[in-house]
Each structure stands twice: as structure tokens, then as C-alpha cells.
Simulated assay, not measured.
Amino acid sequence: MRTSAVAATATATAALLLPLTPSAAHAVGNPAITKVVVNKGKNIVVGPTTTTEFSAQITATHTAGVATAWVQLWHGASDESADRWLTAPPQCTTSGQATTCTMNFQVTADTRDMTNVVSNAQAGTWHIYAYAHGKDGAYTRVDNYATTKVQRASKLTANAAPEPVKKGKNITVTGTLSRANWNTHKWAGYAGQKAKLQFRPKNSSTYTTLKTLTTSSTGKLSTTVKATADGYYRYTFTGTSTTPAATAPGDYINVT
């Protein structure tokens, strides 16, 4: 296997509380890996320049006791040829025959930092490698215990104008959907994505979808609607496998 200096990113995917069956988890007499949790079960989201920090926990049991256990995250066609995220040695605590070990990860797109650096091609599904080593020398390794998502951070804006506006007149709602470009370390427009325009009346807590738009080649959104009442306009994006959902703050319009 190889360790990549250009490897991946972070802040959050599915609840990785996925116990294995005894036959899949370990051979008879070897440690049993009973639980793995990565980033509290959330997707790992990484921005264009900042460092994302998250932890992973692995729990294992063994009749002879567990000396240590750890997880690594890897991306690629197979575990043996993968890009891999590494951490400092795990910190472990034991209760009875069960030992839980915690590892703290740091991931960034900044190539000046040679620890777990990500590139755009690595956004999406990552695999979780799990390992437990018994005090008697027996060990268990699971190359693909579960999967998690590593995503390019996203943001969305909305602006409604003119304001104030006469009732029945048109207003234009513009916005931009952007996501982190890990190769250039900047925000970039996210093209060809569906976003919903929503409206919430002034005294309501509920948004209603007015229409669905597709972002331009630069991630731009623009449409016109008739002003009917005081309230808030926003855009919302449901996300993709490589990019998390985003919702713009509501922009208030005063209708006279």
C-alpha cells in the first residue's frame, strides 16, 4: 500500500456504527472488532484552505485483552494501492475485555501541509480500514469495514432586489452556488446543479418552493418573481456525493 501526500479532506458521513458478524469480523481466537465510528457518523467536509479536524473510534474485544487498535481511511481501487490517511498513535482505554481506541485526523487541501492533503479527484467515497492487535499477538484486520464520504465544502448566496418593491411588481433573486476547489485552494462556481428558490412570509416559519433552477457554468442563479407580500427569499441545494447540501440565508423584501 502507499501513503499519499495528496490524500483527502474533512468535517463530516453516515453513522458508522456497523458491527460485523463474527465470521466477517475475526477468526476464532482473534480479536473481534465490534464498532467503528468516524467523525461522529457525519460526512467529512473540507474547505479550500482550512484544516479539517475529526476523530475516529474503534472498539475491539479479545479474551487475552487488546493491546491496541486503529483505523485508517483510504481511497482508490484497492487497499493495497490506495491513497491513505494516517494519524498519530491511537489513545486507548479498556473496560473489561473491550478496548476503545481514538485517533485524531487532520486533513487539508493546502499543499504546504504534507499531512493528509486532498485533491479534487479524491472527493466522494472513502473506505475504512480497521485493525485490532491482541496482547497475545493475535490480530484482526478488515480492509473495508465500511465507507464514508469526503466532500468539497459548499456555500450558497441569495439576494432579492429591488427593495422596497410595490406589490405585484417583479423582483429578481440572484445567487451563487460555490464549492471548494482543492486543486486551486479557492472557491469555485458549481455548474449544472439544481437549486430551489423558496419564499417564507414575514410572520411564518415555513418556506415554500416557488421554482427550481439550474446553475450556470459559473454557478450563478437568477430568476424573477412577482412580489406578493413581505418575506424572505432563499436558494437551497440538496447536495451531491462529492458536495454537501447548502442553503442561503433568507433575504428580506419589504412589499409596499
Rank of each mutant, 00 (worst) to 15 (best):
H127Q: 12
Y129I: 03
A130T: 01
A130L: 00
Y131G: 03
A132G: 11
A132F: 11
H133P: 02
G134Y: 01
K135A: 12
D136N: 13
G137Y: 10
G137V: 12
A138Q: 12
A138K: 10
V142S: 03
V142D: 01
V142N: 06
D143K: 10
D143I: 05
D143A: 11
D143C: 04
N144Y: 07
Y145C: 02
Y145N: 00
Y145R: 06
A146G: 14
A146F: 11
T147N: 10
T147C: 04
T148P: 00
T148L: 10
T148V: 15
V150D: 01
V150T: 01
Q151L: 09
R152M: 09
R152P: 04
R152G: 00
R152C: 05
A153C: 08
A153D: 11
S154D: 06
S154K: 08
L156I: 12
L156N: 07
T157S: 14
T157R: 02
T157C: 08
T157P: 05
T157F: 07
A158D: 11
A158Q: 10
A158T: 10
N159G: 12
A160E: 02
A161W: 12
A161V: 15
A161K: 15
P162N: 14
P162G: 12
P162L: 15
E163S: 14
E163Q: 12
P164A: 13
P164F: 14
V165L: 11
V165N: 03
V165K: 00
K166P: 03
K166I: 12
K167P: 01
G168T: 08
G168K: 10
G168E: 08
I171T: 08
V173Q: 06
T174N: 11
T174H: 03
T174W: 02
T174I: 07
G175H: 07
G175Y: 00
T176P: 00
T176S: 05
T176E: 05
L177A: 08
L177P: 04
S178P: 04
R179M: 13
R179Y: 12
A180C: 09
N181F: 08
W182I: 00
W182D: 00
